[in-house]
Simulated assay, not measured.
Amino acid sequence: MVAPIAIFAFNRPNLLRRTLMALARNPLASASPLTIFCDGPRNEQDEPSTQAVRELARTAEGFLSVDVVERPTNMGCASSVIDGLTQMFSLHERLIVIEDDILTSPHTLRFLNDGLVRYAESENIFNISAWSPPHVARAVPAGYPYDVYAIPRFNCWGWASWRDRFIGIDWSVGDYGTFKRSPYLRMLFNAGGEDLSAMLDAQMQGKINSWAIRADYARFKKHMLGINPLHSYTLNIGMGSGTHTTTKTAYWDSDISLALEVASFPKVIGVDEAIRKVYHDSYYGEKRSLPQRIFHRLSHLLRQCTLLA
């Protein structure tokens, strides 16, 4: 069965148009029911662009069906997504999620649907991501036999998951106090990038308003992994204009023309430590200071000691 798709949009009609056009080029689009959640304007200045988004959503074509949910007021990115996910997972066992600035390969829906089928019964898999840092594919160990890899991180630039992974998430992060005081838990959470604990801190301090870091924390608590492709099926075209992607950069850009029509998914998959290290380090880029490099190395050694204990 082809999974339904949810798109979350706000005030960027030009990006949403490109997102819808690319998604409709997927052969499975015509078999996929689509729901577009349109957030309301924050102020009078937002009204023309949010209205343009709604009009565009109503005219979306190429899908099995199109349902448009128009928010009467501005919920904000995080609340809109959390509410939409709750609604969709209450109706569907599995779901594909695309935000309004995600350009997809023609093979994206095939990849995500195949992943949903392959790992539906895998108790250690939290989600299937259509995006991967471009730096990973360039450093895959020789002889790596698959087209995907597992990583302790949730990527939200085009993804899919199942109801039982998302229903019951504590979006308030009620145990944050315990986590905040535990260097050990923070180290474990940071296995997918040293930025993870810092982002959760920023969320809980009210400095950002992200649903994704809270979903990633839920993944961490469930002791689950995310599945990523070696070659990305999506490209974020909204860098510099989004709620949390406010800096324009090409650092994360992937060549989605390299995405495979049919990917090889192993039935059982664990974390390849060489890939995890490249992945982890990609979130620093060229910005890591000497103290950070020392801390990273000590954390890595401690993690290895923990795994061997």
Rank of each mutant, 00 (worst) to 15 (best):
K180R: 14
I128T: 04
T108V: 14
F179M: 03
H135F: 10
R138N: 10
E123S: 14
F126Y: 15
S122G: 05
K207Y: 02
C156H: 06
P133C: 08
R118T: 13
R214W: 00
N190H: 07
I125E: 03
A198V: 06
E121D: 15
I213A: 08
A130V: 00
F179W: 11
A150I: 11
V173S: 02
R186I: 04
N155Q: 14
V173F: 10
P134G: 10
F126E: 10
G168F: 02
L109I: 03
N155S: 14
W159A: 04
S210Q: 09
S122N: 13
M204C: 02
R110D: 11
G177K: 11
I128F: 01
N124M: 01
Y149V: 03
F179K: 04
D170T: 03
H135R: 14
G158W: 08
P133L: 14
G143P: 08
Q203I: 01
V136C: 09
R186T: 06
Y217T: 05
F189C: 01
Y176S: 02
I213N: 08
A130L: 05
W159H: 12
T104P: 07
T108M: 14
F179G: 01
A191Y: 05
G193H: 11
G158A: 08
I125G: 05
A120S: 12
I208L: 12
F126S: 05
T104A: 15
L188V: 00
V173K: 02
A212L: 01
V173I: 15
I125P: 03
A137E: 15
P134K: 13
F111K: 09
G192S: 09
T178L: 08
D147P: 00
D175L: 10
D216N: 15
I125N: 06
T108E: 07
I169C: 12
R138S: 13
R138Q: 15
G174M: 08
V173E: 05
N113S: 04
G174H: 10
P152L: 02
M199V: 01
S105G: 03
P183L: 10
P183H: 11
L200D: 10
R181Q: 15
S210F: 03
I167R: 14
D216F: 00
K207F: 00
Y184G: 02
S129D: 12
I125V: 15
G206R: 06
P183C: 06
R110L: 10
L116D: 07
P106W: 07
A202K: 14
R110Q: 15
D175A: 12
I125M: 03
G115C: 10
M199L: 13
Y119W: 14
W159K: 08
A160P: 04
P183N: 12
L200W: 04
Q203N: 05
Y149T: 03
N155R: 11
G168W: 11
R219G: 04
G177V: 06
V117D: 13
S197M: 01
I125D: 08
R214C: 11
G206E: 11
W157D: 12
E123R: 15
V117F: 06
Y119I: 00
K180C: 07
G115E: 12
S161F: 05
Y217D: 07
D216V: 00
I167L: 14
K207Q: 13
R138I: 00
R138T: 08
G206A: 06
V140D: 12
S129L: 01
D216S: 09
F126K: 02
R118C: 13
M204L: 04
N127C: 13
P134Q: 11
S132H: 09
S122V: 01
P141E: 08
W131I: 03
A160I: 07
R165H: 10
G143S: 12
